[in-house]
Simulated scan of single mutants.
Amino acid sequence: MREGWRKYKLLTSLSSSAQLDFLTRAMASDDKPEVAERVTRGKDHEEEKEEDKGGFIDKVKDFIQDIGEKIEGAIGFGKPTADVSGVHFPHIDLHKAEVIVDVLVKNPNPVPIPLIDINYLIESDGRKLISGLIPDAGTIRAHGSETVKIPVNVIYDDIKSTYKDIKPGSIIPYIVKVDLIIDVPVIGRITIPLQKTGEIPVPYKPDIDVEKIHFERFSFEETTATLKLKLENKNDFDLGLNALDYEVWLGDENIGGTELQKSAKLEQNGITHMDLPISFRPKDFGSALWDMIRGRGTGYTMKGNIDVDTPFGAMKLPISKEGGTTRLKKKKDDGSYDDDDDED
């Protein structure tokens, strides 16, 4: 008994590999082959059990996959499709561009599918202009399609302060990247990557000068005149003028203004001349007007807005001129007066 216990302790003190080697040698040197046969049979039986176990798991996996495919085929589940169908600029001014990205999503499934998240990025020449995340973006109806609108505001001051080479009046290329994260029954959560390229303007206000004021009728009760205007479009794209509004000051006195429909094409980086009518009552104004009548120069200011069409949509751009000097010249033969414009 003690000898057996000693041998057991000696065996257990060996490493696992040494124990295995010892047992293997013991079985190999045993004079009783039936013991080795039993061990071999036991080993074969264990391997058969493992094979049966592995085969059972594989059969379960195959069964589940087969059932899933049959359910998917019978009910008609499939992956939705999507495309960036358009990029619009509903409003552009000197400060920002409002951008709407239209994404058309089609759902072939018999049940509505939820849009989990929408990730978007707008970049230009590899540089990020703006990015964001829209969570819980809605649901796409069963066997239908929806246009998902992604609203984005591109702030020009942020762009120009970050990238010094982007100048007012320029056109820059862009690429819109969108990731739609959708939860589809049976299939699970999927991500659909989309992108679209285009161009976005960085508008600049036109320069304006009053080259001359042509007085058609001059009296203290009612004076009518025509402003000889020069507009310089400093943008790299044409402006189609539709309307404008303006006011004029002589010195500190507002002599009036008007709104009118006016059609003209302001070519890119070009100069356009136009005539604008104005009327006022001189007796209602102060010394600035009298200085002009006496032949002395007086300062003038003009401010307003122009409504224009562009390749990117409609814009409303400000126009202004401050610091100009004007004086009334001698009366002409036709009874009208001309006014010189001297810029400071």
Rank of each mutant, 00 (worst) to 15 (best):
D291F: 14
L250H: 03
L250E: 07
L241I: 03
E267W: 11
L328R: 02
T272Y: 05
K265F: 12
S279Y: 02
N242R: 13
P311F: 04
W249T: 01
T272C: 04
G299K: 08
L289D: 00
I319R: 00
T310S: 05
D275A: 15
N305H: 10
G256L: 08
G257E: 04
I306C: 03
A288I: 01
W249K: 09
K331T: 04
A264I: 03
L241A: 06
R327H: 07
T298C: 07
G240D: 07
G286P: 02
G304Q: 06
Y337L: 03
K321F: 12
S336Y: 02
G335M: 10
T258E: 07
T326Y: 03
T325Y: 12
K329S: 13
I319D: 03
T326W: 08
H273F: 14
K332F: 09
L244I: 11
D291L: 10
G251I: 06
F312C: 08
M274A: 08
E259S: 15
K332R: 14
D338S: 08
L317V: 06
K321P: 03
D275F: 14
I293V: 15
D333A: 14
M292C: 10
G251A: 02
D338H: 09
Q261K: 14
A314G: 11
R327D: 09
I319M: 09
G323H: 06
G251C: 10
K330A: 08
D307Q: 14
E267G: 15
G240Y: 11
S263I: 13
K265A: 13
D291M: 12
F285E: 05
D334G: 11
Q261A: 12
D284E: 13
H273Y: 15
L289H: 06
D245K: 15
K303V: 15
M302F: 02
I255K: 01
K331M: 13
Y300H: 07
E322M: 12
P277R: 09
G335P: 04
S320E: 12
W249Q: 04
A288E: 08
Q268A: 14
L250W: 09
I255C: 02
G295H: 07
G256A: 09
T298M: 08
G270I: 05
W249H: 08
A288W: 07
R296K: 14
I306W: 04
D284T: 11
T298D: 01
Y300P: 01
L276Y: 04
T298P: 01
D275L: 14
V248S: 00
R296T: 10
I255V: 10
W249C: 02
V248W: 04
Y337N: 03
L241F: 09
L260N: 09
V308P: 02
T325F: 11
